[in-house]
């Protein structure tokens, strides 16, 4: 590891200030992603600002029937919190589909949103990668890209956002509350949190330099009864998704009042399909409806050399997740 300075702060503003002041500083939360990346020499901060003492781990009822989750709450505690289990079971399912028990015990919600891609070229400093080192080229574009994006990629980068929790947060229309060095807070709707790679794949999301995630706000949800998080992967556990689907239905008897369909590991950000949602809204919950929604969901997909299977898999996963959400199977 490269030498770095370790800074401990006790309030959020100080944390934001420290990282704003030093362009080579990074926040440290659970460390399950950033420390790995530092060992691989992919991330090279010269200062880590430790957030773990900040008082940002609460999970409590928010305004208007919502719930607020602290950025530093652990994944495990979040998934198992009674408020979450009761009102946002989709989130519980998504979190528990990720990583392993040990990792979830360390991982924080803020860190989870910020986790970086699992592209193999990103991890190997001997390989070209525009995300790691802008201008070096994209190793995966013409290389091994079985796990890469089918939506929204650019010639500069075809990586995916690999996480699970965020897929559920997209479906639940969460807001990410962030604070800057001067203590000002703003809320970013989760769909605007992560970015598409475009010409600047080095930027994963729309946080400003030094901005600290303090909380995730969940609005009141009508999706506590009909939901499903499906994760398809190469082994039964402890692997990132090939394709994931967060499906949530607001049902009126057998009819779908409102639907949310978000696919994971198919793009540089969780991929919410408004097309699929439109195809579901007002329709009866049936396999046929779900099939047309799945066609709509994958309609715009553009495969790379080795990941065309994600289109068919994505369709089937959408159908399966919706069938489960509707409790038809």
């Amino acid at each position: 590891m490269r030498p770095f300075k370790y800074t401990r702060v006790s309030d959020a503003n100080a944390a934001a200030r420290a990282v704003t002041a030093n362009p080579n500083a990074e926040f440290l939360a659970g460390g399950t992603n950033i420390l790995d990346l530092m060992k691989e020499d992919v991330e090279r901060p010269n200062e880590l600002v430790d957030l773990t003492r900040l008082n940002l781990a609460d999970i409590k009822a928010g305004p208007n029937g919502g719930v607020t989750i602290g950025a530093l709450a652990k994944n495990t505690d979040t998934a198992n919190h009674p408020l979450i289990r009761k009102s946002y079971p989709l989130l519980t399912q998504a979190i528990l589909a990720g990583a392993s028990g040990q990792l979830r015990n360390m991982a924080t919600n803020g860190g989870n949103l910020m986790q970086r891609t699992r592209c193999q070229y990103f991890y190997d400093t001997a390989m070209p990668c525009n995300k790691r080192e802008p201008g070096t080229g994209c190793g995966a574009r013409e290389g091994l890209n079985r796990i890469h994006a089918i939506f929204g990629w650019s010639e500069k980068c075809v990586a995916t956002y690999p996480g699970d929790m965020a897929n559920a947060l997209y479906a639940l229309e969460a807001q990410v509350r962030v604070r800057n060095a001067s203590g000002r807070e703003r809320s970013i709707p989760i769909v605007d949190f992560h970015r598409l790679p475009g010409d600047t794949p080095e930027k994963d999301n729309n946080l400003e330099r030094g901005e600290l995630i303090v909380a995730i706000d969940l609005p009141k949800s009508n999706f506590a009864n009909n939901y499903y998080y499906l994760k398809v992967r190469d082994r039964a556990s402890y692997a990132f998704a090939l394709v994931a689907v967060a499906a949530a239905l607001d049902m009126d008897g057998g009819r779908i009042r409102q639907a949310r369909v978000v696919m994971g590991s198919v793009a540089h950000k969780p991929w919410r399909s408004r097309e699929a949602e439109a195809a579901l809204s007002g329709k009866p919950a049936s396999e046929q409806t779900f099939r047309s929604a799945s066609e709509a969901a994958l309609a715009g997909a553009k495969p790379l050399a080795h990941n065309a299977y994600k289109i068919e898999l994505g369709k089937r996963a959408v159908v399966r997740a919706l069938m489960r959400a509707a409790r038809l199977i």
Binding site: Y123, R235, A236
Partner: peptide, 20 residues
Amino acid sequence: RFGRIMNPNLQHYHVPVHAD
């Protein structure tokens, strides 16, 4: 193209876990 192993680690090289 590079003649290089691209998954030389246990995150990308999968072996069975208990659930398998």
